[in-house]
Amino acid sequence: MSTALTALRVLDEVAKLQPVGVTALAERMDLPKSSAQRALKALETAGWIRQAALPKKGWVLTTKAIDVAQRVAAEVGVREAARDVLTRLRDATGESVHLTIREGREVVIIDVVETVNPTRIYIPLGTRSPLHATATGKVLLAHLEPGQRDEIIDAGLEQLTDATVTDAAQLRAELDGIREGRCAMVKGELRDDIASFAVPVFSRSGPVLGAISVFVPRYRFPDDDGAAFCRELKKAAAVISERL
């Protein structure tokens, strides 16, 4: 049995039996005690389990499992709430639309509704991009707590194209405007041939759960600098947020 599979099985058993000691765990799983111990230590290092406080000894789950479950639930909930709205947004703008969430320093596409225009730029579901170089990424970055935002910015801003904003002060000023309600706009910062516009999707309690965007081939950049797109985006985001 692979080490990874053993660790996952051990994690599952800890969740069922917690608090549980290594001897009881090894006997239940028919594993050598040394193998069970290695798996437990690996899971502890990864932050999934910890030693229970006295008086009852043994291994228990940390809150990491809850955090992961909440992220998965949030992603599923946002997708379900947004799907028909994204289709209407595509129809209203004539362009492709994305629904995204943040994972670490990246923005991840979790749903796409493609334009019917025969000339399009295909960016598939699951695509990951740096937060600072995309419209949805800037929206998500703008709405982080200041400490989180600064940590990401201070770690460095990769130059992806000639247009990518890599100056921290310039990016912070842009993020301040987005946080105040301005639609995010990116023109050739991730790829030379793409422009995009984005707004946040809020939960009812206030935190931003994701962002939606309209993206276009750069040669089709709108004459109004995206004002009509941004109006449609804000209407769509309001409907999704209300559903959440």
Rank of each mutant, 00 (worst) to 15 (best):
T161D: 04
L209F: 01
S203D: 08
A73I: 09
A92K: 08
L61K: 07
A163R: 05
R128S: 13
W59N: 03
P130A: 07
A24T: 14
V139F: 00
V199M: 00
L144S: 03
V22A: 09
D91M: 09
G21E: 04
S203Y: 07
F221M: 09
R231T: 11
D67G: 10
R71F: 12
Q37N: 14
V139E: 01
R179T: 02
E114I: 11
A92Q: 07
L157Y: 05
A26G: 09
G147Q: 11
L11A: 06
S241Y: 02
E232L: 06
A52D: 05
A135D: 02
L31P: 00
T45V: 14
L31K: 03
R83A: 13
A169M: 12
T136E: 05
E95P: 02
A92E: 05
V76C: 10
A46F: 09
A36I: 07
A26R: 06
A184Q: 02
I212R: 00
P200E: 04
H132P: 01
I49H: 01
K16R: 15
R28N: 09
S2P: 14
Q170I: 15
I121W: 01
R9K: 14
P118S: 07
T45N: 14
A198S: 07
A53T: 12
D67K: 12
G181K: 10
A39C: 07
P217Q: 08
G147K: 11
R28S: 11
A173E: 15
G206Q: 02
A36S: 10
V14P: 01
R88A: 08
V78I: 13
P222D: 02
E189H: 11
G94H: 05
P217Y: 03
G126M: 08
V116E: 14
A15C: 08
L31T: 05
I212V: 07
V85G: 00
D150Q: 14
E242D: 15
